[in-house]
């Protein structure tokens, strides 16, 4: 399971970085979203991966760590708000600057 998990995270993060470097606002937003998915999964994994371990003490011999789940929830909420802000800002930029390049102007050829 660890290998699959690690490869998934790697692919997500790599695609995110690639899209981020495209320097057009839509791919950049997509890239940021993919990176934040990877980060959220990473936080989750830091509570150790395992199946059949409830996050309640006393229900079974082993118990899962509930804290990373709380952290990941906070991170998701904040990441969602921030992404929404970038989208609004991007729309504003399109209207104001007439370009979707992150520098606010077309690069010189």
């Amino acid at each position: 399971m660890e290998a699959v998990f690690a490869i998934t995270l790697g692919v997500l993060a790599a695609s995110g970085v690639y899209l981020l470097l495209r320097a057009r606002i839509f791919p950049v937003v997509m890239g940021l979203t993919l990176i934040s998915y990877a980060v959220n999964l990473f936080i989750f994994a830091m509570g150790r991966l395992g199946t059949g371990v409830p996050a309640v003490i006393g229900k079974s011999a082993e118990y899962g760590d509930p804290l990373p789940q709380a952290l990941v929830l906070t991170a998701i909420v904040i990441g969602f708000a921030m992404t929404a802000f970038v989208v609004v800002l991007a729309l504003r930029g399109m209207g104001e600057l007439k370009t979707d390049h992150v520098d606010g102007e077309e690069p010189r050829a």
């Binding site: 940021l32 990176i35 830091m46 990373p68 952290l71 990441g79 930029g93």
Partner: peptide
Amino acid sequence: QVKAGVHYVVLNLLGSSFFLIGVSLLYG
């Protein structure tokens, strides 16, 4: 302002991702 804002926001969002990785790594 919009022009300068895009850089500022995108960079800081990426910074937040690094922050979360560092923090959760330390927690793990």
